[in-house]
Design a protein around this nucleic acid. Structure first.
Lengths: 234, 234
DNA sequence: TGCAAGTTTTTTATCGATATTTTTTGTAAA
DNA sequence: TTTACAAAAAATATCGATAAAAAACTTGCA
């Protein structure tokens, strides 16, 4: 009986309360529910997330190692800050790692790898072309497509670091999501797909670099506007 | 009074018991005191490290995010396994990141950066030439030299990832430390120093790649021997 | 008013206790 | 013997309580 209750309440692959708290906090930070520099008071979070102090502290410890949260001595936890420099840093690193992952992927990818790229691209295409663009839907499809591209990469560490950077970047992208995406994303994705399927490493790397750079530029622009607006208020 | 006691017992910058446990566990894993795949029982560790369950669990959570510990759903923690594939993976990634960090460093490094390279190289040289090579001393000097080389790199994320990989690699290097280092490390380090000071990015990157590759090759050889020996026993 | 020392309140970090889950051990049937 | 099952033991994950630290708030004095 208790098992049934647990099965219903646990989300994703969260087997412990600590995992649940970790995933929820992570998601809330990425999606801007928890704002940069915001103080994360254990007592407050307890009520918010419905778990005790121990699992919360464990979750926050992990998020600290991931760079989503900062922890200072006896002064508790905060949501990690955001800055233009950090975005530039993440962008540069993401380009480096995603190019590497893509190269390895093109080298080792088999038929299943190709199929997955075709399939995820098609799904992404559908969302991009639809009138009512659901940002959440697009986010998932976009992630699936990028994952498919680097699925042939066998490096555990490259995947780990890339995953962290993707989500870090996603946090920046999310705060800039309000503005409509003006550029022709579809064309960029198509070029990426074709280059990968043609096993043209150089072309694919150039495409991914351009793609990440443009996304980052737009995000940076929105971030600057928001920063300016905040300063005007203060 | 209590403060004085704390000041004496706390090591490094560890402001909390959790930090202490984190640093000690990390060090013990890197230095092989805790063996790969070894079960980390909270109750046992409590006695060993003299802290309660909560700080230990927090420390283990962080180490999990760092990749030094694995955690499985209601089944506790283990020291992360070691394998030839993992070593190869770490090596490849380290080359990628250290080359990048070195490039940025050569580009942005100032006079202080140059001075630090010269100084740390000199200290490393001293240890390498001395008759009684203290591995612990060498380890520190080697780390200082490599840190100095990439000190000009401004990327927070690059430093973070590089730091993790350096320590992961160090774990592999430590288990292979018993064997005497036969190659001419000094020459490799000198080439590295000269190339960096000459601001020759290409040459420095080649040097660092060779350097890391050779270290990894020797480590791999010892790791293979140990694996074989273990299998013979079993 | 401005500042500084002392006091209260809040918050954090940690411990001990408990319920739940996993592993081990023991026992009987195939 | 081996296998299957049940009971016991061990270990984990979690909670509530407490001690220690930091922040906020007085209050006294120049």
């Amino acid at each position: 009986m208790a098992r049934t209750y647990n099965d219903q309440t646990e989300q994703n692959g969260a087997k412990t309360l600590s995992d649940q708290a970790y995933l929820q906090l992570r998601s809330d930070i990425i999606h801007g529910e928890l704002l940069p520099d915001e103080k994360l008071r254990i007592e407050h979070l307890r009520g918010e997330y419905g778990v005790g102090a121990s699992p919360l502290r464990e979750a926050l410890s992990r998020l600290t190692a991931d760079g989503f949260v900062t922890a200072e001595g006896q002064r508790g936890f905060r949501v990690a800050p955001m800055s233009e420099e950090d975005l530039a840093d993440i962008t540069r690193m993401r380009i480096l790692l995603e190019k590497q992952a893509l190269s390895q992927s093109i080298e080792h990818g088999d038929d299943a790898w190709e199929s997955r790229i075709v399939a995820t691209f098609y799904q992404l295409e559908k969302v991009e072309e639809s009138e009512a663009r659901d940002p959440a839907e697009w986010e998932i499809r976009n992630h699936d497509f990028h994952e498919a591209l680097i699925a042939g990469c066998t490096s555990k560490w490259l995947r780990r670091f890339y995953g962290i950077l993707y989500d870090q970047h996603k946090r920046y992208r999310n705060i800039a999501l309000s503005t409509e995406i003006p550029r022709d994303l579809h064309q960029e994705h198509e070029e990426l797909r074709n280059a990968a399927l043609a096993r043209d490493t150089k072309r694919a790397c150039d495409a991914i670099e351009q793609h990440i750079m443009r996304t980052a530029e737009i995000t940076l622009k929105v971030l600057r506007e928001e920063t300016r607006r905040e300063q005007e208020i203060a």
